[in-house]
Design a protein around this nucleic acid. Structure first.
Length: 270
DNA sequence: ATGGTAGAAACTCTA
C-alpha cells in the first residue's frame, strides 16, 4: 500500500494538481490538509471519476482534512474524541487493516502567542489520544502537516530558526513525545538527500533557493515500520504553476502477508 | 527593521 500526505492549501484551487498527482504517483491513500472548503463543496464526484473514494471534515475558509483512497475506508471518525475543537484538523479511518490518522497540527503563528498556546494544548490532547489509539490499533499511521521541524536537518538554517515557531524546543519536545509513544519517523528509516524539505514559504523565492522546512511527516507504528520499503518527498507539484506551499510525502508499505525479508517487487507501478 | 506571497473572503485573517 502506498500512503501519502499533502497539505494542498485549498482543495478547490489544487484539485487539478491533485488529480494529476494521483495519476502519476498512484497512491492508494492520500491524506489532505488545509482543504479550506465546506463539506458540501468537497469534490467527491471528481475524485470518484479518478477511482478514489473520500471522507472529509471541512469548514469554511480555514483548515479542513480529508482521506482520499482507492482502498475501501471504514470506521471513520472526525476530530480528537473528548477534545472540543471547532477547527477541523483530524480525520481517521481504516484501510486494508491499517488505522490512518490524518492530522493538521495548528501552525502556532508565533512563540508565546495565543495560537502557540493552542498548538501546545492541542498537541497534548492529540498525544494522549494517540496513546490509546496505538493500544487499539497496532497497525497505525499518523500522518499530516505537523507544523514542526523535528531536527536541525529539517530546517534550512537552524541558527535562523532557533526559538522560532515550527522549530521551538517545546514544539520539538511535543513531537518527540508523539514518537515516544512507539512511532517511527518513517522518512528517516532511509537514506535521504541533504536539505530534504516539505514546505517552502511562498515569499522570497524560497523554493527556488531550496530554503524550506520538513514539517510534514508519516509516523508509523512498529509493525508498519517493519513493512515500510520507501519514503520520499515529491517536490514535483511544488514546482508547478500556482502550487501549494507544501510537497506531498509518500510511503510504500509491503503487504502484511509478505515476509519482510522478501525482496520481490510490490511497488511495480511508478 | 520590515516585508516579502498566497488563499478565502470581503476590506482582514491565517499561514
Amino acid at each position: 500500500m502506498k500512503i501519502a500526505t499533502w497539505n494542498v492549501n485549498s482543495l478547490k484551487v489544487r484539485l487539478p494538481h491533485l488529480l494529476d498527482w494521483l495519476a502519476a504517483a498512484q497512491p492508494d491513500v492520500v491524506c489532505l490538509q488545509e482543504i479550506k472548503l465546506e463539506n458540501e463543496k468537497f469534490p467527491k464526484a471528481e475524485l470518484e471519476a479518478a477511482g478514489y473514494e473520500a471522507v472529509w471534515a471541512g469548514q469554511k475558509t480555514y483548515n479542513g482534512v480529508a482521506i482520499v483512497s482507492r482502498v475501501p475506508l471504514a470506521d471513520v471518525q472526525a476530530g480528537i474524541p473528548g477534545y472540543s475543537d471547532e477547527q477541523r484538523r483530524v480525520i481517521s479511518a481504516t484501510a486494508d487493516g491499517v488505522r490512518i490518522v490524518c492530522a493538521y497540527v495548528p501552525n502556532g503563528q508565533a512563540v508565546g502567542s495565543d495560537k502557540y498556546e493552542y498548538k501546545l494544548g492541542w498537541l497534548a490532547a492529540f498525544t494522549a489520544w494517540l496513546r490509546e489509539e496505538l493500544a487499539r490499533s497496532p497497525n497505525l499511521v499518523v500522518l499530516g502537516d505537523y507544523n514542526i521541524a523535528p531536527d536541525e536537518r529539517d530546517v534550512y538554517d537552524p541558527k535562523v530558526w532557533e526559538g522560532q515557531v515550527l522549530f521551538s524546543e517545546p514544539e520539538r519536545e511535543a513531537f518527540r513525545k508523539i514518537v515516544g509513544l512507539g512511532l517511527v519517523d518513517s522518512f528517516r528509516l532511509f537514506e535521504q538527500p541533504e536539505r530534504s524539505f516539505t514546505w517552502w514559504d511562498y515569499r522570497m523565492n524560497m523554493f527556488k533557493r531550496k530554503l524550506g522546512l520538513r514539517i510534514d511527516h508519516i509516523l508509523l507504528s512498529q509493525p508498519l515500520a517493519a513493512r515500510c520499503e520507501s519514503v520520499a518527498i515529491d517536490v514535483g507539484p511544488r514546482a508547478l504553476e500556482r502550487p501549494s506551499d507544501h510537497a506531498p510525502v509518500i510511503a510504500a508499505l509491503r503487504p502484511q502477508t509478505q515476509r519482510t525479508t522478501n525482496e520481490s517487487a510490490v511497488n511495480g507501478r511508478a
